[in-house]
């Protein structure tokens, strides 16, 4: 579903950004790219301007931009500690590999 269709305060994850090169790059530099957590905080009359929270960043977007962002609703977050351990193991493996 599109970001513009999301309800207020619904937690979602970005699946795809269907923007052209430059806008896509700009959104990415704000941290808005595939895999980011996103939710709508507020919007103006007629949803023409939207305030979203991307991870820990508050961003203002227009409806036109929000329509280009494909999201999926997250039901339950993966357990944080587990993610962390997986990540650490991964990194150690890579460090070893590079040293070789």
């Amino acid at each position: 579903m599109k970001l513009s269709e999301l309800k207020k305060h619904q937690e979602a994850r970005v699946v795809r950004v269907d923007a052209s090169g430059e806008l896509k790059q700009r959104l990415a530099s704000f941290g808005l790219l595939r895999g980011a957590n996103i939710k709508i905080i507020d919007c103006s009359l007629g949803k023409s301007t939207i305030e979203v929270m991307v991870d820990n960043t508050l961003l203002a977007l227009r409806k036109e931009e929000a329509e280009k962002i494909e999201v999926e609703i997250i039901e339950n977050q993966a357990y944080h500690g587990k993610q962390k351990r997986v990540r650490q193991r991964e990194r150690r493996r890579l460090v070893q590999e590079i040293k070789k």
Binding site: G21, K24, Q25, A28, S29, G31, L33, R34, G35, A36, H80, Q83, K84, R87, Q88, E90, R91
Partner: peptide, 21 residues
């Protein structure tokens, strides 16, 4: 094939990983 996009994705993955750790 957009190398800038690739770079952005790589960096985002690194940043996410570091923050997690």
């Amino acid at each position: 094939k957009n190398i800038k996009e690739i770079r952005a994705n790589e960096h985002a993955a690194i940043a996410r990983g570091i923050a997690l750790e």
